[in-house]
Design a protein around this nucleic acid. Sequence first.
DNA 1: GTCTATAATGCGATAGAC
DNA 2: GTCTATCGCATTATAGAC
Lengths: 192, 192
Amino acid sequence: MSDRSPLSPKGTRQREKILTVALEVFADEGYRGTSLRTVAARCELSLAGVMHYFESREDLLVQILQRRDEVDAAAISAEHPIRDFIAVLEANTSRPGLVELFVTMSAAASSPDHPAAAYFRDRYARIVDELCEFLDQRGDTRPLTDRARDARALIALADGLQQQWVTNRTLSIADEFAYALATHSNGFLRAD
Amino acid sequence: MSDRSPLSPKGTRQREKILTVALEVFADEGYRGTSLRTVAARCELSLAGVMHYFESREDLLVQILQRRDEVDAAAISAEHPIRDFIAVLEANTSRPGLVELFVTMSAAASSPDHPAAAYFRDRYARIVDELCEFLDQRGDTRPLTDRARDARALIALADGLQQQWVTNRTLSIADEFAYALATHSNGFLRAD
DNA sequence: GTCTATAATGCGATAGAC
DNA sequence: GTCTATCGCATTATAGAC
């Protein structure tokens, strides 16, 4: 989907390394401050060397987000997913560059052919599925369509709060989210 | 804040006309398809003629959003604000270009010095105030800080759903929003 | 086959004539 | 207040060099 050609084992490792480094660079220096040349320098590669592993700049940026999703997912336990998710929200706040990258890509996703569009489609679908499954295990017996609505609302709440945080960084996304859940959720989504 | 100099009555009318036309052009032809030269042509002006009234392209774009806010606000009655707001959400769906403009500007707002940053700060603050006032009139006796949390959550829900809609245009923002309100709100925010 | 160097296009922005 | 003309910049397409 993103490779120019089948990658050798070494190539795969290189790409992984680039993604890891790029994630850190954007987290440390902010979205707007960072060019791909900076990322390349930190990888001890040229710009061309970096671009060899990605179709385009946008493609690389999207893969950084995918990588963050993987890291975040690993921080969410089966026992206390809501509590853990709130912790992830809180942690993201201390990495503004990644949040900026996220909101920038989510705007870019409004072009259906932008690589970010496919990423967000898949991401939303996956999270909705996971949340529906979680609700089911919690004993939510409503039809799947209703559980899916709850899932989408939950994601919307988190994303929307993040958007507000971008222009008002004194806001605590985690507190706001937890309050809304505590005072308005129908029970299945209460903090665990 | 945005004018180069005090405007004559005619100048004010011209600027209003440009904003009205620009709103329609972006609504009709989408955000990405439209250049300021296109807007200018529809106004029967040159690019320079349009730019005379705005500090920059970004400034014009933000003022288009402000204009839409005014139009939307006029569609919300004191009697049934929630019901009317849901109708506005639904109506926006038929003007994808404006939604794209909104999400694009909300990403741009992550630069604190971008004109969109001030716009969103003010907009969030204003809507939160209005919603707090509304909750108060509805008999919500919680402290202001808690009502403000509800207000922010409501805005987040609407914005977040809009963001999902951008990548999945089969979603009905209005239905999703109404469902969440009906099944999870604490009562003061039930549809009216 | 890959990278690079150049050309062509279209954009927002600005200067100066009227 | 509006125009023409032009600038610098970014993106895209092309083509040649390795």
